[in-house]
Amino acid sequence: MNELDIRTIRSSIEKINTLPTIPNVLKKLLKMLENPATSLNDIGHFISHDPIITTKVLRMINSPIYGFPGRIYSVNQAVILLGLNVVKGLLLSVSVYDLMKKVMMGLWEHSLACAITSRLMAKKKGLKEPEESSIAGLLHDIGKVALILQFQGYYETAMSTADKKNIPIMDAEKELFNINHATAGEWMAEKWSFPRNLIEIIGYHHKPHISRNFPVETSIVHLADILVRGRGFGFAGDRTVPPVNETAWALLNLSNNDIKEILKELEESMGMANELFIE
């Protein structure tokens, strides 16, 4: 059977949680998320019984990714303040952080900058929970992690193709795998029982015009990705800024000045955020 047959790719991606490289904590977390009866309380317990996770969660929560005004000192306080969806996303980001750092140099920095930019944009658009946009920004490229974990050799080929032809990495992925990282990410997110909004944003962040339930949130991550690549923070597999989707651009309707302000705040936050995550 062809290794790059689309069904084979899908099943490989859906099996990622069984890889030995996946930390046990993440495995436990995924089990919890699978169970619809898991409550905010259960998750609070899960975090506070693991001192390493506790530290990581508090560090992440107090970073510019979320931008809360005061310092958050305890897991309980965090859980109450943030609610179930955000806490789930937060835990996923904490667990995926190590994987991201492992698979592609610069992908973490790219994702971090996208998280901050998405949050700033969500605030500008008056969204009620800008933290959800932080998480979406942080996890939007999870499909790249999936493809690299399962098909490292092929992914390197896609990266060289993108480089040689000067095309976006998603086009090179498509040539090779018949799908791009957004689809891979969507499969992984579904399998991992991510919250609905996250699955849709991850799956459609390169075609936000067909996002049905979260068009604004998806457009935010789409444009954040472009701004961050344009500014040159991190590395996401290629050196090319992809074109902006016209529907998303019109929907967000940001003024030049809005974008300037977002970039300025992003710039200030990045120095601080990078410092925070150096181990």
Binding site: R231, R239, T240, V241, K260
Partner: peptide
């Protein structure tokens, strides 16, 4: 910056985005 925008610069709005980032 110029290099990064080479591919997409002829698409709508990309010139605006590039200009804002350049000024930034």
């Amino acid at each position: 910056l110029e290099e990064r925008f080479k591919y997409a610069i002829s698409y709508p709005h990309m010139d605006t985005i590039k200009k804002i980032i350049k000024e930034h």
